[in-house]
Design a protein around this nucleic acid. Sequence first.
DNA 1: TTCGGCGCCTTAAGCGATAG
DNA 2: CTATCGCTTAAGGCGCCGAA
Length: 259
Amino acid sequence: MGGSSLQGWLKPPGAFSTFNREERNAVAMLYAALLHSGNLERFADAIGWDGLGQPAAAEVFVEWTYARDLWSLHEDPEQRRDAIVGLLAPANADWLRHCAVEQFNTFFGATPRASSHEIQYPGRWSVRRFAANIPDNDEFRRTCVFKWAFNSKPDLVIHGSPDRVLWIEAKWTSGEGSYPSSSGEKREFARRGLHAVSQTDVQRFLVTELLGFDATFAYLVKTGTAASASHPTLTWRDAFSQLSTESLPPFVREWIHHL
DNA sequence: TTCGGCGCCTTAAGCGATAG
DNA sequence: CTATCGCTTAAGGCGCCGAA
């Protein structure tokens, strides 16, 4: 290794698998392991999830964007409008059902600007813009959760028996977060005297209320300190220790060994 | 002249790093 | 430990430009 490279001054202790500390890489390693025969069952057992069903029919995804991808399949503005008004049940539902597309988008503050021809994705609504149009605190808060839910994206999801999913939240250094996150939105919540919404509540709303799945949540963490109070929590080390790693490449087993 | 593709612009999310 | 900052990425409108 050349002495003029960074590695000349800062010596790696071995191959990258011995010191990698990237959360998304951990998810990729888990995903690779879960695709090996028998590991889905072992992982479900370790979590205590009874929704797996037939392993051969199960599906596993990283960066689960179910709502976004379902939305993009259906471009008809009236279908999208009906879905939003039906699920959100806003006080001005009658007006929202009949107003122009651009007025609909403007009401929710669609970004970067309101389209005149397509009903825009709720994840692109602006809290600070629709705050001016929704004075009622309960409805404002519901609209926020609705918007946030469409942006919520679990690290890993297993589809098991019909309508049953296991939502895996992968944590490395940080714990469970909360909404709102931006300072402007926080000010608006403070002004209205509203409490912050936990990430878990937004996630549950997405997968249960919006999508209609029977969902179980689980956390994977680096150390016990990041554990969730409300969900089954497993350390990465314990999770991998339940899985068969014999057929994985040596560098993956090396990475697991260094957890 | 119109239409479609491409790149630019604006806005927001999410993350780690950092400061208090 | 928490609030804030900066960086990167994504989404979608819109203008530009060339071809039919």
